[in-house]
Simulated scan of single mutants.
Amino acid sequence: MKAVWNDAVIAESDDTVVVEGNHYFPSNSIKNEYFHKTETSTSCPWKGVASYYSVTVNGKTNTDCAWYYPVPSKEAEKIKDRVAFWNGVQVI
């Protein structure tokens, strides 16, 4: 699987976990040069508190387009150390 935004592959892995229709990529499969942490967080009743990354490629930034659960709930342990995408990032 590949995560693509602004004509760049920002993550790539043969080992994704699908939860609620979202592919969660291993953290070590993201291209760190494009990612920067933000202050945004959200809460999911069963997964826990999510943190976010924005992605900058070729001078354009996609704000809060990637999320991860630093400390997922016990029910969501399979997405620990994984990152998912939305907001225009194509997962193909």
Rank of each mutant, 00 (worst) to 15 (best):
M1I: 13
M1K: 15
W5D: 03
W5Q: 10
N6K: 14
D7R: 13
A8L: 08
A8E: 11
V9N: 05
V9M: 10
A11L: 04
A11V: 08
T16C: 14
T16Q: 04
V18Y: 14
G21Q: 12
N22M: 08
N22A: 06
H23G: 12
F25L: 11
F25V: 09
S27G: 13
I30N: 00
N32R: 13
E33I: 08
E33Q: 12
E33S: 11
H36Y: 14
K37I: 07
K37H: 11
T38M: 08
T38K: 10
E39P: 04
T40W: 05
T42E: 01
T42R: 01
C44R: 00
P45Q: 13
W46M: 14
W46V: 14
V49T: 11
Y53G: 01
Y53E: 05
V55N: 03
T56F: 12
V57K: 03
V57D: 00
V57H: 02
G59S: 06
T61N: 02
N62V: 08
D64S: 07
D64L: 07
D64K: 07
C65A: 03
A66G: 07
A66Q: 03
A66N: 05
Y68E: 03
Y68A: 02
Y68W: 11
Y69L: 04
S73R: 05
E75S: 15
E75P: 09
E77Y: 10
K78Q: 15
I79L: 10
K80T: 11
R82P: 00
V83P: 02
V83N: 03
A84M: 09
W86K: 03
N87G: 15
